[in-house]
Design a protein around this nucleic acid. Structure first.
Lengths: 143, 143
DNA sequence: CTAGAACCTATGACCAACTCACAGGTCAAA
DNA sequence: TTTGACCTGTGAGTTGGTCATAGGTTCTAG
């Protein structure tokens, strides 16, 4: 398979295929005549794996490491599990943060709604932002 | 105030102060003798506003625009409200996505837990990732 | 046989929002 | 006067690609 064929098969752009190749995630062979890169079914498997891992929040270096481990016939699973669990914790932290943010935004917006519409004199929303108390920088304030 | 004093007052790094200055969010005066930049209370206000707006997900160009509007004695609020509402919708979308991701990660991890511990022969987590069905790319699969 | 379309190559710039490093200038205290 | 803490500007690095450019190749149609 050539670049675009692989790209189409994995539903990514040719640029991404080339990028991943530069990054060492894919290992195409080369035709010395025209210098073209040729990919096989294993590359497709690697690419699909890489894309799915990306969706889970794995970084390219992590993915490269996982693939490398597998190449050496080591099971990458223990490492993957670690990263996976870390990533899960991270996702949960992100969710909590965003939910807190959302709560504050909603209440700020409702405070704005209760004010005279489109007040051309006021800086109401801006004041809301200015006086936005960041719980992260005001430790102990929320308890 | 000099760079570091402002940075300390707003709890950011001097690099950030310099960066925001380059980006036009802060407008220090200059001492022609030593070329130092001097910031006043208004700059501190602007910087604090900028940081809070960043926490809410406003981009630097948006913040620059808001500050610019305020400089011209226009109330930036209507614009701010629009961006704010867009940003709220975005936050809610992000939360939903992350929650879906989390659910899938948790069930993948519990599937892994049920397997023999540390199986040196298997590629269980990797298989889980490989066969991870992305709902976004399999429309209609989830309903 | 040849023109053009569609592909291939490598390289490098660009995005956001900083962060860090570097080389050299300034200033206050000991 | 020397040390150390600060200041300056510039440029590069971060992440995961995307886009542009310039030039080479292959395929298809006329």
């Amino acid at each position: 398979m050539k670049v675009k064929e692989l790209a189409t098969a994995a539903d990514v752009t040719p640029d991404t295929v080339r990028f991943y190749t530069r990054e060492g995630l894919l290992r195409p062979s080369r035709n010395p005549d025209n210098n073209y890169q040729y990919y096989d079914a294993e590359d497709l498997r690697r690419l699909r794996f890489a894309r799915k891992a990306r969706q889970l929040g794995f970084s390219l270096p992590e993915i490269r490491q996982i693939l490398g481990q597998a190449d050496e016939h080591h099971s990458p699973c223990p490492m993957v599990r670690d990263v996976f669990e870390q990533r899960l914790a991270e996702v949960e932290r992100e969710i909590a943060e965003l939910q807190q943010l959302r709560t504050r935004m909603v209440s700020a917006l409702s405070a704005w709604q209760e004010m005279p519409d489109g007040t051309p004199d006021g800086h109401t929303i801006c004041r809301l932002i200015e006086h936005w108390d960041d719980p992260a920088t005001c430790p102990g304030k929320e308890h």
